[in-house]
Amino acid sequence: MHLRGKRVLITGGSSGIGFGVARALLRAGARVVVTGRRADRLDAAVDALRPDGDVTAVVADVGTDDGRKRTLANAIDALGGLDILVNNAGGVRAGRLEQVEADDLRAMLEIDLVAPILLTRDAMPALRASGEAMIVNISSVIALVGIPFYATYAAAKAGLAQFSEALRRELNGEGIHVLTVYPAGTDTPMMQTNEAGADLGFGREPVEDVAAAIVAGIAEDALSVVRGQESRAEMLRLNRDDPAAVDARFFGIKHELETAVRGHRAL
């Protein structure tokens, strides 16, 4: 896909991966609308992004019906249509299942799974009108290797990944491609309350590297983008071939991991 002139909507674009993808797409010549729940953060993001190109902000919560409606209406009005939808907005709450509040569990499912499905459905008419469109769903490597104390987050992100794969096949040959992205630990505000380091499997990649890989995947019409260093790739292979070995590896660090991530909350 040629990116110059493409009309892009990015949810959760005020910081982190969404902001990085917005900047990279603007520099490639795309026109971008970013969304978020906090006006102050969006204003700061737009001020930072404006030197790179044509960017507009929509203050809305895509976890609500009204927020999704306003997001799409304002984005399509600003852009004159829609070519690329990036479902990036997300939230996380780590901890033992029985210790996580029900409201936090529901919030993860709503923002990480239900919201992108419904927003994608509502965006389909505009994407079909494009003639060359793409849906980019930001999942997580936790969808590929379940990590203790992230059970519900893993469920939501794995659900999003399977939604992506099934939808890609559903839309094959109809002018809309679907790309699934699996970021590993990334140096974003969402990770600030996670105290686990590389020794516990939570290394941090720079946002710029992850964003560059995503934009390259868009340009190449890739099926997926999987991030993480070689240690992560090795764990993916091991989880496929010998999942009991991965169980044993996590068992050996379970106490340390629980202590490090139990305060991880970004909802």
Rank of each mutant, 00 (worst) to 15 (best):
A123L: 01
A45T: 03
K69G: 02
E110P: 00
A30F: 05
D187R: 15
E132P: 01
R31D: 15
E101K: 13
G5N: 03
L9G: 11
D65L: 03
A248E: 07
D241V: 05
L238T: 14
A48K: 15
V136T: 07
A89P: 00
L3E: 12
N137F: 09
L127G: 05
D209H: 15
A133L: 08
G67A: 04
I214D: 07
P189D: 06
V178E: 10
A196L: 04
M1W: 07
V141W: 04
M191A: 15
I176V: 14
G16E: 04
D61N: 14
M108Y: 04
I135W: 12
A161F: 06
N194F: 12
E195P: 01
T152N: 11
D187V: 04
I214C: 08
P148C: 07
A129D: 05
V32D: 12
A129Q: 12
G12P: 04
D52S: 11
L160I: 05
L79K: 07
I17T: 06
T152K: 01
A60I: 00
D112V: 04
T120G: 01
V58F: 10
S130M: 06
G185I: 12
D187E: 13
S139H: 12
L49A: 03
A161M: 12
A123W: 01
P183G: 02
S14E: 06
R50I: 14
A216R: 15
N74L: 13
A196D: 02
L25K: 00
A212N: 05
A151M: 01
A107C: 03
I142F: 15
A89G: 01
V58M: 07
A158M: 11
F149Q: 11
V32W: 06
A126H: 14
L223N: 11
D241M: 00
A196N: 08
S140E: 14
F251W: 03
A213S: 10
A44P: 00
L82V: 10
A211G: 00
L119N: 09
R50A: 12
D122G: 06
D66S: 09
T11F: 13
K69S: 09
L105W: 12
A73R: 14
G131N: 06
M235N: 04
A28R: 15
D242G: 05
D199K: 12
G80W: 02
G91E: 07
I10N: 09
V225L: 05
T180L: 08
A233W: 13
V100R: 13
T188E: 07
F251A: 15
N137R: 03
N172T: 12
G16V: 04
L119K: 08
I84K: 03
E170A: 05
